[in-house]
Simulated assay, not measured.
Amino acid sequence: MRAGCDLSRRVRAAAALALRAVAAAVLAVPAGVVSSAPVAPLACARPLFLTFDTGHMGVAPLVADVLARHQVRATFFLANERTLTDGSSLDAQWAPWWKARAAEGHLFGSHTHDHVYWRADRPDGRFDMRATFGPDAGRTRVMDAAAYCAELDRSATRFTQMTGQRMAPLFRAPGGKHSPALLAAASRCGWAHVPWSPAGFLGDELPSERYPNRMLLERALRDIRPGDILLAHLGIWSRQDVWAPAVLEPLLDGLRQRGHCFATLAEHPAYRAAVARGRQP
Rank of each mutant, 00 (worst) to 15 (best):
A18Q: 04
H70L: 07
P212I: 08
T85L: 15
T264A: 03
Q257D: 14
D91T: 10
V22Q: 12
L183N: 01
P195T: 07
V29P: 03
A100G: 09
N80A: 11
P123I: 07
D144Y: 05
L248W: 02
L230W: 05
D153A: 14
L67A: 04
P38H: 06
G176S: 00
D114K: 00
Y271R: 07
S155K: 10
L107M: 00
A45W: 04
H233F: 09
D241P: 12
A68W: 06
D204R: 05
V72T: 05
R101P: 01
W118I: 09
L202R: 08
N80S: 13
D91V: 11
R69Q: 15
R101C: 02
G176M: 04
T85Y: 05
A15H: 11
P169E: 03
G259M: 03
G4H: 13
A74M: 08
R222E: 13
M143R: 07
R172P: 00
V194A: 01
A192K: 01
G105N: 14
L217N: 07
C261P: 10
G55E: 12
T157C: 05
R119I: 06
A274L: 06
A60Y: 10
D6R: 10
F77C: 03
F52D: 12
G134P: 02
P195Q: 09
A145C: 00
R158C: 09
A3V: 12
V22C: 07
Q240V: 15
E218P: 01
R154V: 01
S187K: 07
R188N: 05
M129C: 09
R277S: 06
A74S: 03
H106V: 13
A120L: 11
A137N: 01
W243M: 11
P226N: 01
L206T: 10
A103F: 12
V29S: 05
A184M: 00
L234R: 09
L50I: 03
H115A: 00
C261L: 14
S179Q: 09
A273N: 09
A184R: 07
L231W: 03
E104S: 11
V26P: 04
A21M: 08
R279E: 02
A137C: 00
P250I: 13
A21F: 01
H111G: 00
A246H: 15
L230I: 11
E209Q: 10
R256N: 11
V142I: 12
H268K: 00
E104W: 08
T112S: 07
P30L: 12
G190W: 01
A15T: 08
L152M: 11
A276V: 08
A266T: 05
T264M: 01
R172F: 04
S8N: 14
R256W: 11
R272G: 04
R73H: 13
F262T: 04
E104K: 02
P250K: 15
A68D: 10
C149K: 04
R214Y: 10
Q280V: 12
V72P: 06
A273T: 08
R9V: 15
G235H: 02
W98I: 04
G278I: 03
